[in-house]
Design a protein around this nucleic acid. Sequence first.
DNA 1: AAATTAAGTGTCATAATAACAATTTATAAA
DNA 2: TTTATAAATTGTTATTATGACACTTAATTT
Lengths: 235, 235
Amino acid sequence: MMKYAGQTRFLVAVDCIIFGFDGENFKLLLIQRGFAPEKNKWSLMGGFVQPHESLEVGAQRVLKQLTGLEGVYLEQISAFSEPNRDPVERTIVVPYFALIDIQKYQAQLSSDYHAEWFLLSEKPQLIFDHEQMVEMAKMRLRYKAALHPILFELLPEKFTLPQLQTLYEKLYDTTFDKRNFSRKVLSTGLLVKQDEKDKENSRKGAFYFKLDKEKYYDNFQAFLKFIPNPEKFLI
Amino acid sequence: MMKYAGQTRFLVAVDCIIFGFDGENFKLLLIQRGFAPEKNKWSLMGGFVQPHESLEVGAQRVLKQLTGLEGVYLEQISAFSEPNRDPVERTIVVPYFALIDIQKYQAQLSSDYHAEWFLLSEKPQLIFDHEQMVEMAKMRLRYKAALHPILFELLPEKFTLPQLQTLYEKLYDTTFDKRNFSRKVLSTGLLVKQDEKDKENSRKGAFYFKLDKEKYYDNFQAFLKFIPNPEKFLI
DNA sequence: AAATTAAGTGTCATAATAACAATTTATAAA
DNA sequence: TTTATAAATTGTTATTATGACACTTAATTT
């Protein structure tokens, strides 16, 4: 089915940049590339778009095939299209970044697949321009998370305020005043305090909170201001 | 040069959504499609990506070829990839939106090309999924302009505060208090008041302002708050 | 029982915001 | 020449949001 005569067709791929948070640090999910060139080198999860699927569907398929993950939060970022970015054959790639709760998918991941979590600070060299994609995804995440409450996607169902604050502090590589932080977070009305405490990480223990799912979905696009002076971090 | 065996290649296109502002209303630049199908129907400026160009370069080339415009502010938005979006042959399209000063390019446009400005409210039916692209670009513009000072791209070198306010009011389909608006705008330090007045639009005349270009480029990513309660407009 | 460690909480001064209306300027009309 | 008109320009105030700052509480460990 080639009806627009005289035009060049291109390979189109999707790559998935999957961020996780282990309670202490950001992590990145990587696999070892299964085919040449750069076979066995660490790489983002990627694959070619198939004839009858959209980019979004392709990204979900690739993610499922390579990691077993389904139904995760995916967001498209700017396409990479430098003619020589793939040395084998020109490929235009549309990257997606995703945020997932590491614990939730740990069993699934470790049993069936060979994807591995790396601390963002200790990630190995990646193939092609995947480093750039990770960098761009991180910038995008910083931008988006400064305005919208998406970081909850990285946390388990129950989490503590200190955990949430650490998450934000690690993303922006800074520290926040805990009194101001909790005031802002709680003022959104998105969090519901639980009776139970997390006793793993301190003697006193920290109360768990859950997301108010309904408010969360309603307010997903709402502007928040968890980050003081966002312009300091987003330039 | 097909080295990744067994994979399907796709046509990849770029479409340009060009916004302008005539001092009173938003406008959209359209052309009549020059080839079948839908020949002579109104359409965005689009074209297929060529073998040795990136998407960005392709978008600039298409824009130049079809309108004569060069070096305009272009920003990529999310790719459209539904398998049947182009009835002739599957095409994945990466749209770019642009903001230009209508006056600046009017001569160029009308002499050599057949692109035409339409009021956004009076635009004709567009081919394929171009309506969706325009809608998405408009949403993206509203989002971006609420946070960053990009709307100046739509104005001539000299402009008045009432003009600027009208621009914002039309984009968000609302009205703002002019005292608060001018306070916010002027507090950015981006505007330099001129001695001259615009006497076209009122008896008293309104002072012209120019952008402080240096500050503008430095602060392009800076957060502004021209729009009160942005969450009202961006959901 | 005392020491330790992290969680949890409150105040205050300053800045930002939104709501609000009177004055000024230049032209047009009388 | 004076008056009317229309839009531009300008300031105040009450409220809210913000950021800076330090002590108290809870539970475990020694």
